[in-house]
Amino acid sequence: MSEETMIEPTAPSDFRCGFVAIVGRPNVGKSTLMNQLIGQKISITSKKAQTTRHRVTGIYTSETAQFVFVDTPGFQTKYRNALNQAMNRSVTTTLADVNVILFVIEAGRFGAADQEVLKLLPKQTPVVLVINKVDEITDKATLLPFLSSMAQQRDFAAIVPISAQKAQKLDVLMQAVEPMLPQSVPFYEEDQITDRNERFLAAEIIREKIFRLMGDELPYAMTVEIEKFVEEETKDGRELRHIHAAVLVDRDSQKAILIGKNGEKLKRIASEARQDMEKLFEAKVFLEVWVKVKSGWADDTRLVRQFGYE
Rank of each mutant, 00 (worst) to 15 (best):
R251M: 03
H242K: 11
I205K: 03
A246R: 14
L201F: 04
K235G: 10
L213K: 03
Y220G: 12
A221T: 12
H242Y: 09
V247C: 11
A203F: 12
R274Q: 07
H242F: 12
L213E: 07
Y220T: 14
K267A: 11
F211L: 01
E231D: 12
V249Q: 12
I226N: 01
A221E: 15
I205H: 02
E239D: 10
E217M: 08
L248I: 13
I243T: 05
I206V: 03
M277R: 02
K265V: 04
I257G: 07
R212C: 04
E225N: 15
I269S: 02
R251I: 06
R207F: 10
L218N: 06
E232Y: 06
E208R: 01
E232D: 11
E208W: 01
V230R: 10
E225D: 15
A256W: 10
A202R: 01
L240H: 12
L280Q: 00
I205P: 07
T234D: 04
K255R: 15
L266V: 08
F281G: 09
F211I: 00
S253Y: 09
L218R: 02
V230Q: 13
E239H: 03
L201W: 03
L240P: 04
E282F: 03
M277L: 10
E231S: 08
F200E: 01
E217F: 03
A221F: 14
R212G: 01
A256S: 13
L240E: 08
L213M: 02
I259T: 09
R212L: 07
E225I: 13
V224A: 03
T234N: 05
E208A: 05
K255P: 05
K235F: 06
L266Y: 11
E239S: 07
E282I: 00
E204Y: 05
V249T: 11
Q275R: 12
L266E: 10
D252L: 14
D216L: 05
E217Q: 12
A246S: 15
R212T: 04
E233V: 00
G237C: 02
M277C: 06
E278F: 06
E278M: 13
F211Q: 00
K209M: 01
P219L: 08
F200W: 04
A246H: 15
D236L: 06
K235E: 11
A273N: 01
F229P: 08
L266K: 04
A203Y: 05
E227S: 09
F229K: 00
E278Y: 05
D252Q: 13
T234C: 11
M222H: 08
K228Q: 14
E278I: 01
I205L: 02
H242M: 08
Y220C: 14
Q275V: 08
L258R: 03
I226S: 02
D250M: 09
I257P: 11
F211H: 08
D236V: 06
I257H: 03
F229W: 10
M277E: 01
K279H: 10
T223P: 15
E232P: 05
F281D: 03
K209V: 11
E272G: 09
E282R: 07
